Amino acid sequence: MQHKLMATMAAGLEALTARELQALGFETTTDNGKVFFSGDDQAIATANVWLRTADRIKIIVGQFKATTFDDLFEGVKALPWDQYLPLDAAFPVAGRSVRSTLHAEPDVQAITKKAIVDKLATVYHRRGRLPETGHTYPLEVSILKDIATLTIDTTGPSLFKRGYRIAKGEAPMKENFAAALVMLTNWRPELPFMDPTCGSGTIPIEAALIGLNIAPGLQRRFAFEDFAFFDQATLTAAKDAAMDAADFDRPLDITGCDINQEMIEVSRLNAKQAGLLHNITFKQLAVKDNHPTQPRGVLVANPPYGKRMGELEAARKLYAEMGQIYSQMPGWSKYILTADLGFEKAFGSKATKRRKLYNGSLRTDLFQYWATQRA
């Protein structure tokens, strides 16, 4: 069966996700926070297994204009729900409405649920309530500017949940956002890679997954595995192909440093869980003492932002230390993420380029300092 599919992601990462899908062989179109593509069950499995920067893969069951609850009910009921939902399907309906006539989200959800029940009851010749004792099919009705979109989430827990992070620090970065930071650099696996403020190790671990071409979804489960219409052999084939594509023996020079020894131990635990402990070097080291000996490389840092009262001064002192050390590394490209717009002044130089990103709901900027000297 062919599906209209939608990958969702954090604002600002659409181009990265589109590039990933195109590399997998799909044609794409892009909207805010969404990349659209089409494919069969194999496409669902492949996208879920391989996408590093997306949050979810959803099947678009249908789209239509709805300015009244009658429009919504009839539009939902007309969709081919019986192609996706068996008689005993449990189908919780999430709902949201933005800049639309039908703005009462609980009512939108209730009407959508009732319309689907009516459709399935008619198809399966049932009266009254459906059992909903089977596997879960997470549904969403989203109304944007009076256009209703009905989707089935094939992913389950967000794609950022790779399964390797068994320990974390105070402000953990989502795995897919860390992967995006690596992919926004000019790093190649033959170059050294460093994270001088690695925290729980997410950025170095994602760099290693990229460097070894290991699919991020290789070790996790997905919601679609329980869907009646989905053939389990399709996922097995996708994961087998991903294993074949991985280059486990490629040598990598990836280092994660942190001033806190407890965080270094956390990083090692997570890297071990990911099967990458021997591919990454973790060191307890302060930024001011971190002087890479390699003439070329790529550095990605997510230092403290100083958002809490009294912490900004300490954060800017750290930025100044970074500026002093990194000015002596002309062969390295440096990418530093922070929510402090005063970063460049504290760092001591203007970035080559800035890119606005959202780390969760927090507006941040990726300050990029490209290498000025080739070794």
Rank of each mutant, 00 (worst) to 15 (best):
K119E: 08
A241S: 15
V49T: 13
A10F: 05
A66L: 06
A47L: 06
A375E: 15
Q368Y: 02
T372Y: 02
V300A: 11
K114H: 06
Q273P: 00
P216D: 04
F222M: 07
T8W: 04
S38H: 13
H278I: 01
T151S: 14
Q63F: 02
T17L: 14
T28G: 04
V123L: 01
V117A: 14
P330E: 05
A110F: 12
E170W: 00
H103F: 15
A78L: 01
N32H: 10
L184Y: 09
Y84S: 04
W50I: 05
A339N: 08
L212N: 04
S361Y: 04
A180G: 11
V76S: 08
H135N: 15
R354V: 12
L5A: 06
H291A: 09
S97R: 10
F64L: 02
K239I: 15
M9V: 11
P330R: 11
A171V: 10
F367D: 00
V35E: 05
A10W: 00
E344M: 10
R296Q: 15
N32L: 14
S100P: 03
I336K: 01
T46S: 09
A245M: 12
F248L: 14
S100I: 07
A115E: 02
G348R: 09
H291C: 03
I336A: 04
E27N: 08
S349M: 13
K350T: 15
F69R: 03
Q42E: 15
K34W: 02
L139V: 09
G201W: 04
G156H: 01
L72G: 05
F282Q: 10
F69Q: 05
L218A: 11
R316L: 04
A178P: 08
R354F: 01
E14Y: 07
I166H: 12
A43C: 10
S349W: 03
D40V: 09
H103Q: 12
L252W: 07
L212G: 02
A223G: 07
S267K: 02
P303L: 03
A246P: 03
I143Q: 03
L51E: 10
L150S: 04
L102P: 09
R188P: 01
P292N: 12
D253T: 14
F229N: 00
V76H: 10
H135T: 14
I325M: 11
Q284K: 15
I203M: 11
L139H: 12
A171D: 06
W81F: 13
I254M: 06
R165V: 04
N359Q: 15
F64D: 08
E140C: 10
F347E: 03
L13V: 03
A207I: 00
D107P: 00
P196Y: 09
K34G: 00
A238F: 09
L85W: 05
H291S: 13
L299T: 10
A245S: 12
V98F: 13
A43M: 01
L139I: 13
A245E: 13
R268Q: 15
A180N: 07
I44R: 12
A315L: 02
T202V: 15
A237I: 03
D31Q: 14
F367R: 07
W370Q: 13
R162W: 05
E170Q: 13
F227S: 00
P196K: 01
